[in-house]
Design a protein around this nucleic acid. Structure first.
Lengths: 254, 254
DNA sequence: TCTCAATGAGAGCAGTGCTCTTGCACTGAA
DNA sequence: TTCAGTGCAAGAGCACTGCTCTCATTGAGA
């Protein structure tokens, strides 16, 4: 009894110690990531240097490889964080907008995504600019990467549920072949109400939204567009209409 | 007389030699650029190395600095080339489409730009991905960079001249403040017929077009969209309608 | 007490962009 | 013909990079 008890207590202590070690390890990894993010924001992904990160943290560069097996892995971690941050911004904007006016929610989400991008240009470039490492995004990034798209999808779905989403007048089979299998399965889930036929329009709007943001962040609008707030506002409404969102008060559609 | 004649002949010879030297110099520079372009297409801008270019050309790396003062200058030259190439593709498509059907010309230009991007992903990433050198595009790039936009503008102008361009129902003053001074001057030139009020819509469509292309080239459509041809085709028509282009045969607009 | 895994330190390798000096070849003029 | 000037390539070298290897320390488990 006592032996059993002490053994159990022992394993608890082991677990605590194990947990402490893991926590320390996680904290060091977080510190590395934090410093790397600082350098990324300051200088851009191209100038992010493992040795500089280690130097700033008072470690030697080789010690850093105990936590991230390569520079690309560190970059991947930053990519995941950036996707999560921009996704979080989109989700917060949708939550704040409420469910009463889908068109307003759409515009608010777009604005929030744009605002995040303008505040974090280098991190934005990391995820929506040229893909730096290799060319194949690691599997860890696909989940976080889809958060913004899922918010846009949720807004469209809310509009559909409220009866203010105009469905495209295309045959359903025509749309089904456009989207990939994964997305078809996603839309076929029982709790989803959004008709699959709007998926292509939504995907196009999604891409076009980031086209507007990228041109602004990457400087293509320099000496071309002055009032970028106004342009973005108008374009976002046009995008919503393209998806089928009608202004609130327009009632049900044909 | 003879002295004068021989002196003149002498200067001619000098000019010839001078020209030959300059031609040799230009040829070496072109060879460097060519090899750099090969490496860029094969490996991407991040892996483009001056030393590797020099090695491949059988020169020593320091000799290369006689022709391009820095790696960024070589990259800038490649950027200008890429802008020229994609602009050329757009111009050719417009020329081939003719002036009869503006909507078709619009779609053809968009398709040509997309095709070029998919054929030259690394060069596309260089010009429409994250800006690599510094963050400020050198002045040499602004001209070539605007070629695609000018083609889209010309298509819209042709549509206007043919009476199939729906003008936005916004006050002109509202649009004037959106676009930058340079563009206002461009549109105010006497030989331009396009109303300045469509400029914001055109700029938005321009950015959104490259959003669609970037998502495809950079892999954001992986596992999301299968039939990208179809999606792009539909989106481009929607973009044209957003600008105000009506299908041929729709006649003059309100 | 001994063992072993985790960690960090340091040296070192191959590669990078870039600078500087040196020497060669060729030019125009004395 | 000789000589100063010029453009060019070669090579050494600097400071930096990502990454690998070995070695010493440390601390927990048997």
């Amino acid at each position: 009894m006592l032996g059993q008890c002490s053994r159990r207590w022992h394993t608890v202590v082991m677990d605590v110690i194990q947990g402490a070690k893991e926590r320390v390890r996680a904290e060091v990894a977080a510190a590395i990531k934090g410093e790397a993010r600082r350098q990324l924001a300051a200088e851009g992904a191209a100038r992010l240097s493992l040795r500089a990160v280690a130097r700033e943290l008072g470690m030697v560069s080789s010690a850093l490889y105990r936590y991230f097996p390569s520079r690309d892995d560190l970059l991947t971690a930053l990519i995941v964080d950036a996707y999560d941050a921009i996704g979080q911004a989109a989700e917060s904007a949708r939550a704040a907008a409420g469910a009463t006016d889908p068109l307003r929610a759409w515009a608010d989400v777009c604005r929030a995504v744009r605002a995040w991008a303008l505040e974090h240009p280098h991190e934005y470039a990391l995820i929506y600019g040229s893909p730096v490492p290799g060319y194949a995004a690691p599997q860890d990034t696909v989940g976080p990467a889809s958060r913004v798209a899922l918010v846009l999808l949720a807004v469209a779905e809310a509009a559909h549920d409220a009866g203010v989403l105009a469905e495209p007048d295309l045959p359903a089979a025509d749309c089904d072949s456009v989207v990939a299998e994964d997305i078809r399965q996603l839309l076929d889930q029982p709790d989803r109400t959004l008709p699959g036929r709007v998926a292509p329009r939504l995907a196009a709007a999604w891409a076009q939204l980031f086209g507007l943001i990228s041109f602004e962040v990457f400087g293509q609008f320099n000496r071309v567009i002055d009032d970028r707030d106004a342009l973005f506002g108008k374009a976002v409404v046009a995008l919503a209409q393209q998806v089928g969102l009608r202004p609130a008060g327009a009632g049900a559609q044909a």
